[in-house]
Design a protein around this nucleic acid. Structure first.
Lengths: 323, 323
DNA sequence: CTGAAAGCGCTTACAG
DNA sequence: CTGAAAGCGCTTACAG
């Protein structure tokens, strides 16, 4: 009835009737039913974001970004958690999350589970992906956004090289495809300086994995600089290093990735490269709106470029050590 | 039609027709519409969790717990973010999140915004709250779960006292009501030992707030032990302490709260008290199911009791210092 | 065991 | 500017 019009702000309602309707709504504490509205409109005003482990900083920040942007437009956020990269788990997550009348889905494809889920999303539902920048295949296939991790790693590595380190080791996060963008950037900075890249040490996502992966490297007195795949890994590496009696940054320099909220308070405060995941989340949502309504203007990207944040874990190699 | 029966696993379908239906579903990639199902059932199979800042460890872990439990039962999670404790913002969040046909809402009321939202939830929608244990008022009013923060703080404080510290300072997180449960536990441990509690230092939720709040305390050579409202605060306090030239734990002992994933890798590794937020999340969901269906057996609580995790930031006060 | 009918609470043309 | 009608895609009694 007319109620629908006033709730949806349709101008074709006279002031008096609008008043009466509003009053009635107040009085009976009427709340519209979301499912009924969604059903009749054929498309719901909620978007689901599919992601693995939401406690990792990057995912959490990106999720927050899309939530903020979505809420500003009156949209809701569902979360679809990817527990494992196994096909059965992926299918279950897809079945769970991909409603045909969904307002859209954004999948965070920073890891293997994410890209599998992305590729399993059934056609017909609005989709955007947050990708690793070097995932060319999916960038060609899906509307997507990405942060330039590769450039960021390049910059961080060059910073270490310019400080005078003969080479830089790398402890990496897992890759979403064949090769991690951060690994690529690190490698090319080394090559650009005429240095043969050592083999990167593959870790997981958390400090414990890094701590364990770094055990051997940490005893090698030749290593004076290490780039870590994220700030959590850096914490684990620093711990391993300190436990092995090596001082940061006097004996070895460490650089992280992300600039998580805790990084500035590590001991010593972590030199890292800031990644604007929240901005990227805003971009995800804006792009999703654009795919739903292709007539709308193509949204401007708001995510900031990666930025090296110089704090206290990277310094010139000490002379005494190098003798 | 019969399709509905096979999808919902109704046994009154013959094997052959079931086969045919399944085949058809496969062939046309049929996916049921969630909104239609929700509308006809009158209640949706998704629960929304309302919370402020999801990047804080406790909220994130609790959210993950309810997500896990919900997913196991085929439920979806919506998130309703509380940006500010202002009445207008609360109302907006409620309007946004409280659908009359919602499967229920769990509100994380660990702060003022949370308890306001809790109290603003309209009647008629299944509701459970995660509360501070000393929030008696709301515990009486709403089905709720809580972790025993007070006992945890008591234990941690007594640990410090038993180590030989003459007193313990406290840098606290904000309270959800008038007095924070962790503050209460700390205070009563002090009183039980015949010590007059100093005035606690009120900080925010993050390391920066703690760092700033601790500036004055840090220069006071009388302080030898401090209990922090959470692990992030502990990191900020340790940073302030170290910057002021005080060694941990030689000059001052520090204990945190939560046992976040990074705590074991702080330098030094943080002594803290582990809180089972994930388990609490499971309890939230189970209780919500019980609220929806009061005939179901009252669920057992799975959340573990708080547990002191002794690492390396708490030690006996050094004699030299005390002379 | 299977199908036809009504209804969930909205929205969207369509008449007045 | 306002109301009556049909329909969104399911589920739930109700007949066969």
């Amino acid at each position: 009835m007319t109620v629908s019009r006033v709730i949806n702000g349709n101008p074709n309602v006279s002031a008096p009737t609008r008043q009466r309707v509003m009053a009635a709504i107040q009085r009976m504490e009427y709340r519209p039913s979301r499912s009924a509205r969604d059903l009749s409109r054929g498309r719901s005003r909620s978007v689901t974001v599919m992601t693995s482990d939401t406690s990792l900083y990057g995912r959490a920040a990106l999720l927050r970004g899309v939530e903020e942007a979505a809420r500003a437009q009156g949209y809701h956020i569902n979360i679809g958690v990817l527990d494992s990269p196994h096909p059965a788990a992926i299918r279950a997550a897809i079945d769970h999350s991909c409603d045909p009348s969904s307002g859209g889905v954004v999948v965070i494809a920073f890891d293997a589970a994410g890209v599998r889920a992305l590729r399993a999303v059934p056609p017909g539902i609005p989709l955007v992906a947050a990708l690793e920048i070097n995932n060319l295949k999916d960038r060609r296939t899906y509307p997507s956004v990405a942060l330039d991790d590769r450039a960021a790693a390049f910059t961080a590595t060059r910073h270490l090289l310019e400080l005078g380190h003969p080479t830089v080791q790398h402890i990496s996060i897992p890759s979403s495809t064949t090769s991690n963008a951060r690994v690529q950037g690190w490698r090319s900075a080394l090559r650009a300086a005429g240095i043969t890249p050592p083999v990167p040490i593959q870790a997981g996502w958390g400090p414990r994995a890094a701590y364990e992966a770094a055990q051997r490297m940490v005893r090698d007195r030749e290593v004076t600089a290490v780039l870590c795949g994220n700030d959590d890994l850096a914490l684990g590496v620093i711990h391993a290093l300190q436990q092995a009696g090596r001082a940061i940054p006097d004996d070895v320099s460490v650089i992280g990735f992300d600039d998580s909220p805790l990084a500035a308070f590590y001991a010593p405060p972590l030199t890292t490269v800031r990644l604007d995941f929240v901005g990227l989340g805003h971009d995800c949502f804006a792009l999703l709106q654009h795919v739903v309504n292709p007539h709308s203007p193509r949204p401007e990207r708001v995510a900031q470029a990666p930025q090296l944040i110089v704090r206290e874990t990277a310094a010139a190699p000490s002379r005494s050590r190098r003798i």
